[in-house]
Each structure stands twice: as C-alpha cells, then as structure tokens.
Design a protein around this nucleic acid. Structure first.
Length: 107
DNA sequence: ACGGTGACGACAG
DNA sequence: TCTGTCGCCACCG
C-alpha cells in the first residue's frame, strides 16, 4: 500500500526488526528509495518516541553507534534494551555490529 | 509560506 | 585513521 506519510513508512519497517537484530537509518532510507534521506529517518524516530510498538533502540547509525540514546527516557535505556536482547554494547557501540545487522529485504 | 533544525552519511584534507 | 565540512529534505513554529 502506498502510504504518503514518510514517517509511517519508516515505522512499518522498524516494527519488523527482529529481536536481537539492529539496522541503520541509511539502510531504511535506502530501502524506501530515498537514500539521501537517512537524516529524515532519524527525525522520524524521534517522533516515534511517543508511539508504541516501535523498537527505536534497534536503529543505530552506520557505524553501529547509539547516537540516539540521548533521546530516550534515560540515556542508558537504549543500551539496556539492546543488552536485554543479547546485543553487547561497548563504548557506545554495538560489538560485532556486522553480525547483528538486519535488512528489510530479508524479511 | 518560509527558514531553521537535525537519532545521517559521504567525502576531503 | 580521524576530524571537519557539506548535501540532503520532512517537520515545526
């Protein structure tokens, strides 16, 4: 279904991210056909904070860094949620980031 | 209606 | 390798 709302498109993808996996803003933007709008994806995630069922903590930047942690209720929440799912975080970064990447196309 | 803003990413030095 | 700069564009006041 063509949804004109860019945010909603982003949310639909983020909702699909499996437990224990992560993806990046750029991957989502690219999958939506707007490779240069990764920034907008991040902006959308900020707004997603108010919604339910959006695992925003599973979206990190291209380096696997938790750049959005400051936008959570507490800065440590993002890390805690990921660690609960078996993802190890070291120095604000996902350890073995490559092994945890999930892509929308593999859904 | 319009300009500033930003949970990014690519590239130059 | 690491830091700085620039382009990108939907949203909000």
């Amino acid at each position: 279904m063509e949804n004109d709302n860019f945010y909603e498109k982003v949310y639909q993808i983020v909702r699909k991210i499996p437990c224990g996996k992560v993806t990046t803003y750029g991957i989502i933007a690219e999958y939506l056909g707007t490779r240069n709008s990764a920034r907008i994806v991040g902006y959308a995630m900020k707004a997603a904070h108010a919604l339910e069922g959006i695992p925003a903590h599973r979206v990190v930047n291209r380096n696997g860094m938790l750049t959005g942690k400051d936008h959570f209720f507490t800065p440590s929440l993002m890390r805690e949620l990921l660690e609960n799912e078996g993802i190890e975080i070291k120095n604000n970064r996902v350890v073995n980031f490559k092994d945890h990447i999930w892509r929308p196309e593999s859904d």
